[in-house]
């Protein structure tokens, strides 16, 4: 049979996520990342229709299990699930049996007895999603585990950058803030370096993990150096709730030395994008004029989160290929 050139191209491109779970970006190939981003483009269009719903996940049940507070991520997953016609169930930990002392594994196995197809998990412990993926038959989607990974945030960040800049390769991307406690940083470093971006990370020396350069990034505590000629500036929240010691003298001093102000922005490229995964601490990592200014794409990130999560839910619903024989 004659195979046309386009069919050949499609065969070379990755056309499916052949995995059960999305636990992190670390294990994804560049082709798999591109597939999620391409699928998200189609999903974004669904959100512009008069009827923002497609029947793709009809009859699938998705449990959103959140052990940590979240507005954006939980709402975003729930809207994504509903737009794909899945049945959704939200478990907020404050009102569940966890307050009575039930373990994560017991909670998950009890939920699984009711046959959900997917579990979206946010947990304060790094590795909680990996653990659950071994215990559960359901597909596990990591919605943030401790200081480990937050893969859908990195995917929506990449989607937002690609939408504006049409590419990731070769861009200078400066990530500034609390590098030590950030799962968003870890997922973003994996993703951006896999797709060929030039990643700079910047923060107080006390908040720079010792082995960060191993991941192929340039680390500095000189914010001007990080911002210079940057195509994208991504700010990370100072995570006071995860800090067990004094990492810097005061929030005011942090803002003075590292805060993103209009003056610092002048050092970046004229078409720079300002990003923040939220929630923002105005006047700490970012000045209000910058957060609300013309270079900010912070609300685009939120909007794109729904499309990216729809793509992940859709692609994982096919399951892992090796299960086909079972």
């Amino acid at each position: 049979m004659n195979t046309t050139s386009q069919e050949l191209d499609q065969k070379q491109a990755v056309t499916a996520l052949r995995r059960k779970d999305l636990l992190g970006i670390a294990e994804l190939s560049p082709g798999e990342i591109e597939l999620v981003l391409d699928t998200a483009e189609a999903m974004k269009e669904v959100g512009t229709r008069p009827i923002k719903k497609v029947p793709a996940l009809r009859g699938k049940t998705v449990v959103n299990l959140f052990y940590e507070p979240s507005t954006r991520t939980r709402t975003s997953f729930e809207i994504a699930e509903k737009r794909l016609s899945a049945d959704t169930l939200n478990i907020a930990i404050g009102t569940s049996s966890v307050v009575k002392g039930e373990t994560l594994a017991d909670t998950a196995l009890n939920l699984e007895a009711m046959s959900p197809d997917m579990i979206v998990l946010r947990h304060a412990s790094s590795g909680a999603c990996h653990f659950l993926s071994r215990v559960c038959r359901s597909a596990i989607i990591n919605a943030g585990d401790g200081m480990h990974e937050h893969p859908t945030q990195a995917l929506l960040d990449a989607f937002t950058i690609r939408e504006r800049k049409k590419r990731l390769a070769g861009l200078k991307i400066a990530i500034i803030g609390d590098l030590l406690h950030s799962r968003v940083l870890r997922s973003n470093i994996h993703l951006l370096t896999k797709l060929g971006a030039n990643v700079w990370v910047c923060g107080p020396p006390t908040l720079i993990p010792a082995d960060i350069r191993r991941f192929g990034v340039t680390a500095t505590s000189a914010v001007e150096e990080a911002v210079h000629d940057a195509d994208v500036i991504m700010l990370l929240r100072i995570q006071l709730e995860r800090m067990e010691g004094a990492y810097f003298p005061s929030l005011r001093e942090y803002f003075r030395v590292f805060g993103m102000t209009e003056a610092r922005l002048q050092l970046a490229r004229p078409d720079v994008m300002i990003m923040h995964p939220g929630p923002m601490n105005r006047g700490v990592e970012i000045a209000s004029e910058v957060a609300d200014g013309p270079y900010s794409v912070i609300l685009d990130q939120v909007a794109n989160g729904v499309a990216v999560r729809m793509a992940v839910l859709y692609l994982l619903a096919g399951g892992a290929e090796h299960e086909e024989a079972a």
Binding site: A42, G318, E321, E324
Partner: peptide, 22 residues
């Protein structure tokens, strides 16, 4: 693709590629 009647009928298997509607 998102409206196919065979989408979720197979127990497992790769999902067909979705492209943009314009």
């Amino acid at each position: 693709t998102l409206y196919r009647d065979d989408l979720m009928r197979h127990a497992v298997g790769p999902q067909p590629v979705v492209r943009k509607t314009e």
